[in-house]
């Protein structure tokens, strides 16, 4: 059991390192170092950067040293909580990202919850009533859900909302709360706005999860332990819910490992269409403005976020699956 946790932890760490290298590569990709672009953007904005300031920055990030040293310096800055400056805003990246990252987490979580809450019962239904009309309908809807990319669904929802309900379904807050400090009322406002983004974001994942749950459960339903459970005199309902569903849940839970990255990915682009105040629009803006420092940091943080989520789901899986818990290797 400990070995399992350790293995997962090490893998998570390696993944974080891989993400950090990729983010660093992205920061480094544009020609010139980012101090140069920093100075350029400051001057363009009418501000000035003193020679001493530039020197201090160069020293801080080791820009005259080999790339590996630069990378290590950058990482150590980040570990200390210093994410650098966002050029366009001329504010620390941390301040710019803060709330938006939280909202990204909230939206992604809501989408995951929606996905599971819908996929689980439908998957069970489709497997138990295989080849029924309901199964066909859900399978069909599932295929449609798979085929419509998140942003397109967002566009359609936006259009339908506007055309037929005369309402702007975008945004996460009502105007009066958008800039307000956090309060209970603002939180409630957030909850009220959450369903549409969560559904839009979760739909294609839901379609996949339904298919996964259905085929898992179909496999399990054929196994002899289901027959022996029936032979023990349990009601059919209880047999199915207690045994095959429970077993099929395990691979289902482990799918969060790629459901989460998928949803976080989707949140970027859906946020843009639905104008949600997540890190998505910020990332796009930063990339278009070639503010690679901000962009790289966002990519890094998103990556770390998914890794943490995946690690938590690994622990969850261990908790529910005795085969992993009791593994003696």
């Amino acid at each position: 059991m400990l070995a399992y946790i350790l293995r997962r932890l090490i893998l998570a760490l390696i993944t974080v390192i891989a993400i950090s290298i990729l983010s660093f590569v992205i920061i480094q990709l544009p020609p010139g170092d980012f101090i140069t672009s920093y100075i350029a953007s400051m001057s363009a904005g009418g501000g000035t950067v003193s020679e001493a300031e530039v020197e201090a920055l160069r020293e801080q990030y080791g820009l005259d040293q080999p790339i590996t040293v630069q990378y290590l310096k950058w990482v150590s800055q980040i570990v200390q909580g210093n994410f650098g400056m966002a050029l366009e805003w001329n504010r620390p990246v941390k301040d710019v990202i803060g709330d938006r990252l939280t909202l990204t987490v909230i939206i992604s979580l809501a989408a995951v919850i929606f996905t599971w809450a819908v996929a689980l019962p439908i998957g069970i239904y489709s497997a138990v009533k295989r080849y029924s009309i309901g199964d066909y309908i859900f399978t069909f809807i599932g295929f449609i859900g798979l085929a419509i990319p998140g942003f397109m669904l967002a566009l359609i929802v936006l259009y339908v909302g506007f055309r037929y309900f005369n309402a702007n379904v975008g945004g996460l807050f009502s105007p009066e709360y958008a800039e307000a400090p956090w309060s209970w009322a603002k939180f409630q406002d957030l909850l009220a706005h959450l369903p549409i983004p969560a559904v839009v974001l979760g739909l294609s994942g839901t379609a996949q999860m339904i298919r996964i749950m259905r085929s898992n459960l179909l496999d399990e339903l054929r196994k002899p332990y289901v027959m022996t459970a029936r032979a023990r005199g349990l009601t059919e309902m209880r047999v199915i819910l207690k045994y095959p569903v429970r077993v099929a849940m395990n691979p289902f839970i482990s799918t969060i490992g790629y459901l989460l990255p998928y949803i976080v990915s989707g949140s970027i682009i859906v946020s843009l269409v639905l104008s949600l105040p997540t890190v998505g629009p910020l990332l796009l803006k930063a990339l278009i403005a070639q503010d690679m420092f901000l962009a790289g940091t966002i990519i890094l943080l998103l990556g770390v976020m998914t890794v943490i989520g995946t690690f938590i789901s690994d622990l969850l899986l261990m908790w529910v699956d005795p085969r992993i818990r009791l593994e003696r290797r």
Binding site: Y225, T228, P322
Partner: peptide, 28 residues
């Protein structure tokens, strides 16, 4: 159902797969 398990017991060929992999023997 009151016959199954109570009056008629069943055992299968595959003892491994006849038990749920995620429930203890005692539970069943």
């Amino acid at each position: 159902r009151s016959l199954r398990g109570r009056e008629i017991g069943l055992i299968f060929q595959e003892p491994m797969t006849s038990f749920s992999p995620v429930h203890t023997v005692g539970n069943q």
